[in-house]
Amino acid sequence: MAVLIYTENAGGKFKKSTFEAISYARAIADETGTTLTAISIGDVDPGELALPGKYGTDKVLHVCNGQLKNFINQAYASVIAEAAKKENADIVVLSNSFSGRGLAPRIAVKLDAGLADGVISLPEISGSQFRVKKTAFSGKAFAIFELTSAKKVISLSPNAYQVVEKHAEGKIEEFIPELKPTDFKALVKEVIQSADKVSLPDAEIVVSGGRGLKGPENWGMLEELASLLGAATACSKPVSDAGWRSHSEHVGQTGITVSPNLYIAVGISGAIQHLAGVSSSKVIVVINKDPEAPFFKVADYGIVGDAFEVVPKLIAAVKEYKASA
């Protein structure tokens, strides 16, 4: 018995969501009285491999193979499943990132495992019962499932579990997987990263704008506020539909679901589809001219006022706060 955690990296560094998933997997290993093994695939910066140990990983399997330098869904899934078998792991944990969403179902099928995806809290384990909770209806509800199979695959929603430091040995071992040529039918040609931007699904703070901003030319102040707060920028559906911002920033039921610590909505009325995508945010701030905007009903803090007046004041206040901190 063991728990296996796939430690996803981006540009050679483990991501924050990876450490969340490690901490989560450690807690499951403690609960079930077993060990935690990590598997890292592809190039990671020297020194990174020592990090899983800081969060409670007993052993780190490192796969360093030129063919696996870039993410290849099918091949990575095969490698992780092979490691799970070798380690005799009955629980595999991943982050429910874009890549994790591709890997988890394939690994589950390979291992004949039940799959719980987008889970938001630790499983409730009692005897052979293993219950997991995930968001459903785009955050309008939670659904609770019981995984009844012997093997289980769990993908954890980003920002749902706190990173916990916990020292463990973290012994690094080389892992040489068997590669199947048929796993290499999808090849990465190019990776385009917007380096200066905080990635929206991972962001701890999100600054989001709606139609109330009147046009794409007015996004400068939101970008400034976001950059001061280390936040990602987002928008409502009408904004991305109008082409003011890219679809990858559209938050809501048919866009990205986010769960940051702080969501600041500027000039967004709060249609039910938008609320669905943000309802699991820890703190919601709403800035809107219309005191009747439905968004205020689900907000923690609200300012009834013109965005063009309020946002510059907030920018000044953040600058002052940062200068004094």
């Binding site: 509800a141 939670f142 499932f145 699991s280 923690d300």
Partner: peptide, 18 residues
Amino acid sequence: NLTFSGFEIPAARGQVKL
């Protein structure tokens, strides 16, 4: 390999602080 147990409605947020 999975059975459904039930739904939960998220707790309502407190009153907004204006």
